[in-house]
């Protein structure tokens, strides 16, 4: 499907679910922009963005360019520390030392949920491909299974992003296992 079809599909979801989005590299930024815009604007939903591919600061800059309001967006940044790139911390960002500290990703998400989110949240994992570089598949699938289950218990969604050009069969199997639905975006 293309971005417009994805937008239409996202509007149809009413219940918390776990969603896999396998997007082509060319549609990657548009997909992020759409997720941010679709889930946060005019809705009582918070978005927790787990950045393992691009530092949160860069994602934030992209959103700023497109004029997307970040008021209801929080970041769990797993990559900036690793690159020793945490000069100043932002109020809506918590850092995890390394993308290998998967439990800490859950803990920081839990922290944001408990502290800031009273209603529903959407947690976007960007991306499973980057997490797969730093972790073996066994622990990664265990993490995603636990994480999805935890979020469901909090009445929240999970969106797992995958880059089509980097997705292996093993990655797609994990996404299909933990997601209620997997969407292909070009």
């Amino acid at each position: 499907m293309n971005i417009d079809e994805l937008k239409k599909r996202l509007k149809e979801y009413n219940e918390p679910l776990s969603l896999g989005i396998n997007t082509s590299l060319s549609a990657y930024i548009d997909t992020i922009k759409l997720l941010m815009d679709e889930f946060t604007s005019g809705k009582n939903i918070h978005l927790i963005y787990i950045s393992a591919t691009i530092p949160s600061r860069s994602i934030s800059s992209i959103l700023e360019i497109y004029g997307i309001d970040e008021k209801k967006v929080f970041y769990v940044d797993c990559i900036s520390h690793l690159m020793m790139n945490v000069a100043e911390s932002k109020e809506n960002t918590v850092y995890v030392e390394s993308p290998t500290m998967l439990e800490n990703i859950m803990l920081k998400t839990q922290y944001i949920l408990n502290k800031n989110v009273k209603d529903v949240a959407v947690v976007v994992v960007d991306s499973i491909n980057s997490l797969a570089i730093h972790n073996d598949m066994k622990i990664l699938s265990e993490f995603l299974h636990l994480f999805v289950t935890f979020l469901r218990s909090r009445n929240s969604y999970m969106v797992i992003l995958s880059i089509k050009e980097q997705a292996t069969q093993e990655i797609m199997s994990i996404i299909n296992f933990v997601s209620d639905e997997t969407l292909e975006v070009d």
Binding site: L107, I139, L146
Partner: peptide, 19 residues
């Protein structure tokens, strides 16, 4: 369990067994 000390108190999640 893995523990985190935060401003809203101690948080815990199960230790992943795959590592």
């Amino acid at each position: 369990y893995v523990l985190d000390i935060t401003s809203i108190g101690i948080l815990l999640v199960p230790l992943l067994k795959g590592g």
